[in-house]
């Protein structure tokens, strides 16, 4: 092949890579623009304060779903984040041998388990014995989804802290646990917060595991042991309904979800922008 031909091919194919990235960015733009356009019409005051109304009655809102989402994601965070952080610290500083390797590998694998299967697990171990759907069972499923994200981000963040500062504390006679909790962990704070925020962002949008745990509800529910509505669940249920005003609520819910998830993601990455190193 002549040089000119090779160079032409080079330019052409590099252009194709630009096209590929352009397609990816354009897809994001198209989806976001549609959701904003269709969802913004649903954003009136009653959207955030009212219960859904029956078909044909205006003024319906998704307030119960917002409360339900806050409740389930809140409980999941209480279960999942502390355990995840502690396990992450263990992997970064204490773990060695087969246990650490196994936990690291399995939490990577857990990231890829379909969320609907995790919902099925929560259904089997919580809903079936209790004989009723509940916000609690939903939060168990969500906590499991959060775990690997928190574990791995915490591990990487703690690993990035210079061991010399902990060794300094030890050399001054500090006990190991104090050196970890009061010297190393504060230095890794930003990364740990990032992991927590990303995990919250991830589960806030999860709907599949809520289908057979939170189940959904048309009414207010403040009890962890009652079936509850959640925003992603409402988006699904109302989007597939045949009624225009319910579909409108679903678009509004989708927009609210996207705004919340994007804000959390951008904040998380601004807090800890450095790329993590294994």
């Amino acid at each position: 092949m002549s040089l000119a031909l090779r160079q032409a091919k080079n330019v052409l194919m590099l252009g194709v890579t630009w096209l590929c990235a352009g397609v990816a960015a354009a897809l994001l733009a198209i989806i976001v623009i549609y959701v904003v356009e269709r969802g913004a019409a649903a954003f009136h005051r009653s959207f955030f304060t009212n219960l859904p109304t029956p078909v044909g009655i205006p003024g319906g809102g998704v307030a119960n779903a917002i409360v339900g989402s806050l409740m389930t994601v809140g409980m999941a965070s209480v279960f999942g984040i502390p355990v995840g952080i502690m396990a992450g610290i263990y992997l970064a500083l204490l773990g060695r041998g087969w246990l650490a390797d196994a936990v690291r590998f399995l939490s990577d694998v857990l990231t890829g388990v379909p969320s609907i299967a995790i919902g099925l697990f929560a259904y089997t171990i919580v809903v079936v014995p209790q004989k009723h759907f509940s916000a609690f069972s939903a939060s168990v499923a969500l906590a499991i989804i959060m775990l690997p994200i928190v574990v791995r981000t915490t591990e990487e963040a703690v690993r990035l802290v210079n061991p010399a500062i902990r060794e300094g504390a030890l050399a001054l006679g500090m006990e190991a646990w104090k050196a970890i909790l009061f010297v190393t962990v504060p230095c890794a704070r930003a990364g740990i917060v990032t992991g927590a925020l990303l995990s919250i962002a991830r589960v806030s949008g999860e709907s599949a595991p809520l289908l057979f745990t939170a189940f959904g509800s048309q009414f207010w529910s403040f009890s962890p042991s009652a079936p509850t509505e959640a925003l992603p669940l409402l988006v699904f249920q109302y989007a597939i309904s045949p009624y225009r005003d319910w579909q409108q609520l679903a678009w509004g819910g989708a927009l609210a979800l996207i705004i919340f998830v994007f804000l959390l993601n951008v904040t998380a990455r601004a807090v800890f922008p450095a790329r993590s190193v294994r």
Binding site: A24, G205, P232, I258, V266
Partner: peptide
């Protein structure tokens, strides 16, 4: 960063977009 955000879009939002658009 944009592509990471595409990964963050909840699947139900992809679903509603897929269904209506």
């Amino acid at each position: 960063m944009l592509i990471e955000l595409l990964a963050a879009v909840p699947s139900v939002v992809f679903g509603i977009w897929g269904l209506f658009v």
